[in-house]
């Protein structure tokens, strides 16, 4: 399978490239609008800040590429920031429009600090994925014993109830950690950083 990794001048792509090769697929980094039929699936990768990523995406017409690709019915996988930009809007350091492919908003985690009101709070580390037991797709993708690696300061929230979705809890905040809507898939954690089970999940999300 040929996988396009959309580069919006974000952080670590090398490990994602390693992971995609490790599962036997052929990754290619793209930095501008490209032909959809060259690829079997695309990944929107996960390190960076929302505003700066969206500026880059718009400048290079990568938004058109992603939206057009979504219409082909082939899989689009957003990871971490790549998941967040699928939503309508983010409030990370200001207010920024996203791609609007999923309904909802991206909000920063804040935690009360003893000294100076509110301070940024990072969710960093391994956490569980929780879902409705009747959601057979999520049940199959996320066996109970598997934790996944999270590294983020903002989270996605939606008023819409996506039937195939999962949540994770951090600091009493229950946020969306997975959505699958037709061929559009997003995960808030990093499968490419979640040991072997994470890399195998990456394969399932891209191939099925």
């Amino acid at each position: 399978m040929n996988i396009a990794i959309v580069d919006y001048n974000s952080g670590n792509l090398k490990n994602l490239l390693d992971a995609v090769r490790y599962i036997g697929f052929n990754p290619e980094i793209i930095t501008e609008n490209s032909k959809s039929n060259n690829f079997d699936a695309i990944i929107l990768p996960g390190v960076g800040a929302f505003g700066s990523a969206m500026d880059f995406i718009k400048k290079r017409n990568l938004d058109e590429f992603v939206i057009d690709f979504t219409k082909t019915g082939k899989n689009v996988l957003g990871i971490c920031l790549g998941f967040q930009i699928l939503f309508d809007k983010s409030y990370e350091n200001g207010e920024h429009d996203g791609l609007g492919l999923l309904k909802g908003e991206v909000l920063p985690f804040y935690k009360k600090n003893n000294t100076d009101g509110y301070q940024l709070n990072t969710h960093m580390g391994w956490n569980n994925i929780r879902y409705n037991e009747n959601d057979k797709i999520s049940s199959k993708l996320f066996p109970k014993k598997h934790k996944f690696y999270f590294l983020h300061t903002c989270f996605a929230s939606s008023e819409i109830n996506y039937p195939v979705s999962a949540f994770t809890n951090y600091n009493d905040c229950n946020f969306l950690s997975f959505i699958k809507k037709d061929n559009l898939v997003g995960v808030q954690f990093h499968p490419e950083k979640s040991r072997e089970h994470g890399v195998h999940l990456l394969k399932s999300l891209l191939a099925n």
């Binding site: 001048n9 952080g11 390190v47 960076g48 800040a49 700066s52 920031l81 990072t122 590294l151 300061t153």
Partner: peptide
């Protein structure tokens, strides 16, 4: 650095 790569980086 945080502005481009995010605070978590």
């Amino acid at each position: 650095i945080a502005k481009i790569y995010g605070n978590q980086s």
